[in-house]
Nucleic acid binder design. Structure first.
Length: 895
RNA sequence: GGGCGCGUAGCUCAGCUGGUUUAGAGCGCUACCCUUACAAGGUAGAUGUCGUAGGUUCGAAUCCUACCGCGCCCACCA
């Protein structure tokens, strides 16, 4: 025992502790335990990803909840897993292949997928391992992956059900297209970023006018940010209310360079104020134009290929990249005197959320889910508080999105993911590319949705071709709360653990995931997927920038764990994240947790070395308790209550600081010091061990490793694991006999005396004498009975305590509450210094007293304020008057 | 264009269902201490017109309005 080092070394204990838990199967959830259930849905991290600070924060919060509930006696399920992250993972593997000089098309679909699975086998367990070193007490036996057989089955079932219910369709729409990933993206996957671009003004000649002289007569000026899309223009639109263009009705314009004839159309959606009030219409490359094109029956000319290079409709520009083409077109327009000017223009441009390439709005045939029918219930459950957001403001964000919901583009032109379970009959559809076959209603002939058919139900042909696309990764994630529990089977897990209790996630994932899970839960399970949604802040660096690999400002949680340990990481990050506020991190912030862990370590070391061998932490009989004992026990009870209250309200930092305050500033600073000179050794040893044990329990959800480690070193054979020890009860039923205020008075006296000593430069180890003038006889007795505290902790000898104590000559004085303290200083007293000290204090107090008096003399205050507030104010006044009188007497006695 | 968050000690932030806090914590700073658990420590101390200006109220860091600075999210102004 004596060999325990004075520095806590997490690296030496954490791994072993985790093995201990796993060996005992402590994180396994049993749906048949009969206990109340508590379950959490883990936001599945990317299978090939690695742990970043956001994960660390997110999973620490979840682990706190799970450990807390487990100790409270709930049967807890924290189901871990990873998602296949279609685009991201495919990109990673493609990059690896590129290093070998290969493209995915060189391998072919099957071979490529083999490569991805291989990659997944090699790298997929990294994040799981990292979550374990963070201390996460997930039920690892139930680890799920979105492409597991069970989850894939759920995806197919859901696809079929949506199809049969008329909620799926495949058709031509403008979608967000990433030319680098060569796939469609959902609206949420296109991140809009404000950029400084150019707005180009271009002349479109009026047909039949050879000269380009008079604006609006000979030509119309059109403004655009993407001149390259003019290759796909089919019209120019103006507002019907715009007098400038009314005369153009029935006229034709000529598309610059290509010379195609364009109609002039009149549409309400054109804003006459913007640009020139004339808008070029490109239905295949812009969502607004697409809508307009549909209204006016315009042709849709798609002028770009999948890589956003200009296709054969682009004439001489064929083969050029879109941005290259932009430059070339501007140049050609200038040559032809059709270019007017370019001005700087701020606008939001979509970027691919995986590779950050500028997204191209592009006409394309894709699968969509009709969302409006799913949104209704999802709005209701939040409005009715059946699903609650913490902090509540996020429900507004959620509702705003839900009320304006748009259809979800779910098909992706990549290979890694759940392939769309739709087969088309080659014979029924002839040679058409199956991608181009529209599916606008359920039951279309020649199409089979669900399992691979052996033949076409219409013509009997055996030549069926599966849709080449895969589904959006979120199409499997949105089923996570029930697909992981075995849905569509009616499993015991679903019965017992669904709906789950809490979802902990980051703000940026509300639309991607939270909202969609609520919709899918309600639609497929008929019930909400979770009751509480806790939205934590975003982890940023010290300057407020979001941490990201590409910016190079990340702090790797694994580095932090190596340096200070998981517990320190967890405690630090939790203590700086107040509800829903962003977390600003720097390496120094982890010192808080490291120091706290070390403090706990050393306090435990002391308790176990000096007393723990015999003491078992039993509460001594009430008669054996000192005021200090009762004070620490009562304070512990208060802390239990505070921690519970904070955790119930998802105020993790509050819970953490309550524990910090109690353990450090009450248990260590005071009780441990007091214990060193306690008379009843046996009683105090038991209380030391008892309080330590309760502290370990309360702290365990926050710092699981160190607390379990200390727990395992505490005496007592049948302790078992702290991880499954019972959570402390709020109160231990101690009689309220005034011990707590008495102890607080003693603490106040000690502080005052220390203060005097510091002011007069008396070393803390040096002894002084002290006399006490009290208001009441009880206080004098209290001091007399507890003189040992003053002597040991303030380093003073108590000479006298009573209501008639006289101030000795050549002494300085202090005040604690209403008790006056005199400390004789013999010849060393510097009267001027003392006068100055008292004078300053007196000034402060007189000022404050004046403000109280003013308040009390205000008739409105006395008549309108609640009686207890007035009483308090009067009590304050009394206290200050006495203090001032005392100080004046002190001053007078110096004369 | 809508919506949201933040501006409190040198730094990072709590507090904000108005009055028990003469505004708190951690870090940093100052002084004294290697006191037999802990120097990653102990004791004591200094530091704030609570962004600005109004308003509501007996009373506002806390509620309302406007403004000034930051930051974020959503949105089809080309």
């Amino acid at each position: 025992m004596k060999d325990i080092p004075t520095k806590y070394s997490p690296a030496e204990v954490e791994g072993g502790i985790y093995k201990l838990w796993e060996k005992n199967g402590l994180n396994r959830a049993r749906p048949d335990s009969g206990k109340p259930s508590y379950s959490i849905v883990i936001p599945p991290p990317n299978v090939t990803g690695i742990l970043h600070m956001g994960h660390a924060l997110n999973n620490t919060i979840q682990d706190i909840l799970i450990r807390w509930k487990r100790m409270q006696g709930h049967e807890t399920l924290w189901m871990p897993g990873t998602d296949h992250a279609g685009i991201a993972t495919q990109n990673v593997v493609e990059r690896k292949l590129a290093g070998e000089g290969l493209k995915r098309t060189d391998l072919g679909r099957d071979k490529f997928l083999e490569e991805v699975w291989k990659w997944k086998e090699e790298h997929g367990s990294t994040i799981i391992r990292q979550l374990k070193s963070l201390g996460c007490s997930c039920d690892w036996d139930r680890t799920r992956f979105t492409m597991d057989e069970g989850l894939s089955n759920a995806v197919r079932k859901v696809f079929v059900k949506l199809y049969e219910d008329g909620l799926l369709y495949k058709g031509d729409y403008i979608i967000n297209w990433c030319p680098r990933c060569t796939t469609a993206l959902s609206d949420e996957e296109a991140e809009h970023r404000e950029v400084l671009g150019m707005l180009y003004y271009i002349k479109y000649p009026v047909k039949g006018r050879e000269k380009l002289e008079k604006a609006n007569e000979d030509f119309v000026v059109v403004a655009t940010t993407r001149p390259e899309t003019m290759l796909g223009d089919v019209a120019v639109a103006v507002s019907p209310k715009d007098p400038r263009y009314r005369h153009l009705e029935g006229k034709k314009l000529l598309l610059p360079i290509l010379g195609r004839e364009l109609d002039v159309i009149f549409d309400e959606s054109v804003d006459p104020e913007f640009g020139t009030g004339a808008l070029k219409v490109t239905p295949a490359h812009d969502p607004v134009d697409f809508e307009m094109g549909s209204r006016h029956g315009l042709e849709r000319l798609n002028v770009m290929g999948p890589d956003a290079a200009i296709n054969d409709l682009g004439g001489d520009y064929e083969g050029m990249d879109r941005f290259e083409c932009r430059e070339a077109i501007i140049e050609d327009l200038k040559q032809r005197k059709l270019f007017v000017r370019a001005e700087e223009h701020h606008h939001a441009v979509g970027h691919c959320y995986r590779c950050h390439t500028v997204v191209e709005p592009r006409l394309s045939k894709q699968w969509f889910v009709r969302m409006k029918p799913l949104a209704g219930e999802a709005i209701k459950v939040v409005k009715e508080d059946r699903v609650r957001f913490y902090p509540p403001r996020w429900s507004k964000v959620y509702l705003n999105w839900m009320e304006n919901i748009r259809d979800w583009c779910i098909s992706r032109q990549i290979w890694w993911g759940h392939r769309i379970p739709v087969w088309y009959c080659r014979d029924c559809f002839g040679s058409a590319d199956v991608r181009d076959i529209a599916v606008d209603a359920p039951g279309k002939a020649g199409i089979v949705v669900g399992e691979a058919p052996s033949e076409c139900p219409v013509c009997g042909s055996a030549s069926m071709e599966q849709d080449p696309d895969v589904l959006d990764t979120w199409f499997s994630s949105w089923l996570w709360p029930f697909s992981t529990m075995g849905w569509p089977e009616k499993t015991g897990e679903l019965e017992y653990f669904y709906p789950t209790d809490a979802l902990v996630t980051a703000q940026e994932i509300i639309f991607f995931w939270v909202a969609r899970m609520i919709m899918s839960g309600l639609y497929f399970m008929g019930d909400i997927p979770f009751r509480d949604v806790y939205i934590h802040g975003t982890v940023r660096d010290a300057t407020g920038t979001k941490m990201s690999k590409s910016l190079g400002n990340v702090i790797d949680p694994m580095d932090v764990i190596r340096e200070v340990g998981s517990d320190a990481l967890r405690y630090s990050i939790i203590s700086i994240t107040s509800q829903g506020q962003d977390v600003f991190l720097s390496k120094e912030k982890f010192e808080t947790g490291r120091n706290f862990a070390n403090k706990l370590w050393n306090a435990s070391r002391y308790v176990l070395m000096s007393s723990g061998e015999k003491a078992r932490g039993e509460l001594p009989g009430e008669n054996a308790l000192t005021i200090a004992d009762k004070w620490i026990l009562s304070s512990l009870a208060g802390t239990v209550g505070a921690v519970n209250e904070s955790l119930e309200a998802y105020r993790f930092n509050d819970a953490a600081s309550s524990l910090y305050e109690f353990i450090w500033h009450k248990y260590c600073d005071w009780y441990l010091e007091i214990s060193k000179f306690a008379e009843n050794r046996e009683a105090v040893d038991n209380i030391l061990v008892l309080v330590l044990g309760e502290c370990l329990k309360l702290l365990h959800p926050f710092m699981p490793f160190i607390t379990e480690n200390i727990w395992q070193n505490m005496p007592g054979k049948d302790r078992g694991c702290l991880m499954t020890a019972g959570w402390p009860e709020p109160l231990r039923g101690l009689a309220d006999d005034g011990s707590v205020p008495s102890m607080e008075k003693i603490i106040g006296l000690i502080t005052s005396i220390r203060n005097v000593k510091a002011f007069w430069n008396i070393p803390n180890s040096g002894e002084v004498e002290a006399l006490f003038l009290t208001d009441t006889e009880e206080e004098a007795v209290l001091i007399g009975d507890n003189r040992i505290y003053l002597e040991k902790l303030a380093g003073c000898r108590v000479l006298e305590a009573g209501t008639a104590t006289e101030r000795p000559s050549r002494s300085v004085s202090a005040l604690s509450g209403k008790i006056r303290i005199f400390v004789p200083l013999g010849g060393s007293i510097d009267i001027d210094k003392e006068k100055d000290r008292i004078g300053k204090k007196l000034g402060e107090m007189e000022n404050y007293l004046k403000s109280i008096e003013k308040k009390l003399s205000n008739r409105s205050f006395v008549s309108k304020a609640p009686a207890e507030v007035v009483e308090k104010e009067k009590a304050k006044k009394d206290k200050f008057e006495i203090s001032i009188r005392n100080l004046k007497e002190n001053l007078a006695s110096l004369e």
